[in-house]
Design a binder for these strands. Structure first.
Length: 423
RNA sequence: GGAGAGUUGGCAGAGCGGUAAUGCAGCGGAUUGCUAAUCCGUAGUCGGCGAUAGUCGGCUCCCGAGUUCAAAUCUCGGACUCUCCGCCA
């Protein structure tokens, strides 16, 4: 959410964000309602000031046993007017707020222009593509041969695109999660959380999934709760409606969660195996920081995610998303894509974003500044570190051997207890 | 699912129809000056005027509705926390 004051003063930036993020919304309407709002506030505040003054007077007269019938009579009509205007104001505010929730975040000035994927900028690459002459089997083939997943049986209980990991596949999944958690905690100083996987409407609005993306969420109607699409939702809301101490910042949390996405509208795209699934596991990093430092932390957070791929020795690249590719709530975003030898393409395994004060404003997350003792919104950031399905794809494919077995990377061996998966 | 208790400014805690005591902490200032004491100021938010400093006003005692000239205080509805009972992993 942006402040009305900001919108009033920076209409061009807001229009750019609306256009780039493909949000259809009439800014004029919002500004008109805002003007009406301010007029109403002025009127009703004047009346209330009058009421307060006269009430004071009545109180004094009563104490002195003086008659105040005249004042009381006058105040009756004043109060009626106040009520009328307050109702009107409340309706305006409600309408205004519902519109404001649809305004996307504005861009940081380093975000590349352009509306499509091709305009994303390659920031860096790490490692090398594995030997291009080798005959790489894809992960579906490998999982099948080594009994690591069982999609056809999963469909019996949940339908398509819900993974069922089996045997060493399940253990590998668990190992990846534990390795990543342990690594971020030990090497990067994160504190661990295990959050609820269902969140209410309010919390889901804070992070920006609602109201715009409700169709992409799994929803439990009887309790008005949403299955989280990422641990970002519960973790970011941890400090909702709180004023944090500046000395407590930065707060860096890492959390494992299952993630649920309906992927409405993306049927037929990347449907094979683990490439796009409705439920997956992810280790998520969330930062709460002082505004002046948030872009430093975005770089750091992205490196934290990259470290996992480096430890696993997997080839990847980092790209800076252009205006048209950045999500609704983000001001700037890096995607990390790992190389899949089986697919012969890069797969997104992490998205690291700075939301600046966008989520903080929606969730009312503030801190008290040491210097001036005033209260300001924090900046929130988050990034996957990492999501497992595509990581597993790249891992299995990259580490496959000619005899059909799969070597286990060194860092995972303590978790797996073996160094190779074979038939 | 049933019963009870509670929710007040960063924290603690009074007030129970006349417009938020007090204590502590933090921050700012004053004063005295021997590792401290004392005193003063200091919540958030929205709006008006003002270039800024500032200043004036509104709102805010968990949320919402109601009664009243006036609600932290009374009535109704709801959320959350704690305790007990029931059921269940």
């Amino acid at each position: 959410m942006l402040s009305l004051q900001f919108i009033r003063k920076n209409q061009d930036m807001v229009l750019d964000a609306l256009k780039s993020k493909k949000v259809i919304l009439n800014l004029e309407t919002i500004l008109e309602i805002d003007t009406e709002r301010r007029d109403l506030i002025r009127n009703v505040d004047d009346l209330k000031a009058k009421r307060n003054k006269v009430s004071q007077l009545i109180s004094i007269k009563k104490k002195n046993n003086e008659n105040s019938d005249e004042e009381i009579k006058n105040m009756r009509s004043v109060s009626e007017n106040i009520k009328r205007l307050d109702d009107k104001l409340k309706k305006k505010l409600k309408k205004l707020n519902s519109l404001l929730l649809y305004i996307p975040n504005i861009f940081h000035n380093s975000v590349p222009s352009g509306l499509s994927e091709e305009n994303n900028i390659l920031v860096r690459e790490w490692g090398k593509k594995p030997d291009q002459n080798k005959d790489y089997k894809d992960h579906v083939h490998l999982c099948d041969k080594l009994n690591l997943t069982d999609f056809s049986r999963a469909s019996k209980m949940s339908g398509s695109a819900f993974p069922l990991y089996t045997n060493l596949g399940a253990k590998l999944e668990r190992s990846l999660i534990n390795f990543m958690l342990d690594y971020h905690i030990k090497q990067h100083g994160y504190s661990e959380l295990m959050p609820p996987f269902l969140t209410n409407r309010e919390a889901t609005t804070t992070t920006g999934q609602l109201p715009k993306l409700e169709d992409d969420m799994y929803y439990i109607e009887s309790d008005d709760l949403f299955c989280i699409p990422t641990a970002e939702v519960p973790v970011t809301n941890m400090y909702a409606n709180e004023i944090l101490r500046q000395d407590d910042l930065p707060l860096k949390h890492v959390a494992y969660s299952a993630c649920f996405r309906r992927e409405a509208g993306s049927y037929g795209k990347d449907t094979r195996g683990l490439l796009r699934v409705h439920q997956f596991n992810k280790v998520e990093m969330v930062n709460f920081v002082v505004p002046s430092q948030s872009y430093e932390f975005l770089e750091k957070l992205t490196k934290d995610a990259e470290d996992i791929l480096q430890e696993l020795n997997l080839h990847y690249r980092v790209i800076s998303l252009c205006k048209g590719d950045i999500s609704f709530a983000a001001a700037k975003c890096y995607d990390i894509e790992v190389w899949s030898p089986g697919e012969q393409k890069y797969l997104e395994v992490s998205s690291c974003s700075n939301f600046e004060s966008f989520q903080a404003r929606r969730g009312n997350i503030k801190y008290r500044c040491n210097k001036d003792q005033k209260v300001h919104f924090v900046h929130t950031l988050n990034g996957s570190g990492l999501a497992t399905p595509r990581l597993m794809v790249a891992l299995l494919e990259t580490y496959q051997n000619d005899d059909g077995s799969i070597s286990i990377p060194k860092v995972l061996q303590p978790y797996m207890g073996i160094d190779v998966i074979k038939k």
